[in-house]
Amino acid sequence: MKAESIMEQFRSMLTDLKNHSDINVNIGQVNPPATEEEISEICTKFNVTPAMIDFYGQANGLKIQWERKKDKKLPNGGLAGGYINLLPIKEVFSDWKNIIYLNDSDPRKPLHPLDFFIEEACAALYLDGSDNSQVYYYAYGEKMSSLGVDFEGYLKMLLKSRGFWYWHKAIAQPEYFNPYVPMSVEEKNFREIMPQLFPDFRQSDFQRLNDNNV
């Protein structure tokens, strides 16, 4: 039996979310594929992996927003829902000056937002010239934190997390780690609510990294 492509997996996830009795899907948008010209242009300027070419050749970004029907706003803060906003290829590989970085000496310059799931935070490729760029979590006013995955790995984590609100905090080491409060509100919500909504959810898929802040 032929394995599902990455986009087939995202489409299956979207269908499952729409059919879920406890979930409302507010946005389920899959863009048409990027053109060969768009992909070729990026390939001449950056180290683009086969996984990137495969994804953007099937969909030039996608946006999914869902929420739990009951008690979507949680008493301790945060939301019981998911937000995915995978940007089109030209946006990802554009210049993010004055949005992500300020000048050429800014250590955030190599960050290129991949999944701008909310205005103040994103998952971004760290385009430092390596053959297989890694993905970092970045929120304004905080240090960037490695998620320990590349582009392909990030897509797989999105599928497992369904893009749950700030699921990234279950992996990325926080800038200031308090041993007495080891879990953020967002991570606590993620770990408590995901098993309630999705029986196939596995906590072991989301292990916190060591402190790899740049």
Rank of each mutant, 00 (worst) to 15 (best):
S5W: 06
R68C: 14
L155G: 02
E37R: 10
K160Y: 02
Q29H: 15
I100N: 11
L14A: 15
E37Y: 05
W96N: 09
M52S: 02
K72S: 06
Y176P: 04
C122A: 13
E152Y: 06
I84H: 06
W66H: 08
Y140N: 05
V181C: 09
N47Y: 03
L87D: 01
R11F: 07
Y83R: 11
L209G: 12
L209V: 08
V135K: 01
L14Y: 04
Y136K: 10
A3D: 11
Q134N: 13
L209A: 11
L159C: 14
F10V: 02
D22N: 12
L17K: 00
R208F: 04
D115W: 04
I89N: 01
Y166G: 01
Q196H: 09
F93L: 05
Y154V: 00
S105C: 08
F116G: 00
K69A: 13
K143C: 07
L87E: 13
P179F: 06
F93R: 01
S161W: 04
A51G: 05
I23W: 04
Q29V: 08
P179E: 15
S161M: 07
I23C: 02
Y56R: 04
D22H: 12
V214C: 08
V30I: 15
I53M: 12
P113G: 08
G148W: 08
G28E: 11
E152W: 03
Y154D: 05
P179Y: 11
P33W: 13
N103P: 03
K109L: 07
N26L: 13
Y180V: 07
P199I: 02
R208S: 10
Q58P: 05
L147D: 10
D71M: 08
E152T: 04
I39M: 08
K143P: 02
P113K: 05
S161Q: 07
S184L: 03
E91G: 03
Q134R: 13
N19T: 11
E8G: 14
V214E: 14
P88G: 05
V181P: 00
G78W: 07
P113L: 11
N31D: 12
K63W: 09
I64V: 15
M1C: 12
R68G: 12
E152Q: 15
E41C: 09
V149S: 10
S146F: 01
L79N: 06
R162N: 12
D95S: 12
M157L: 15
I118H: 06
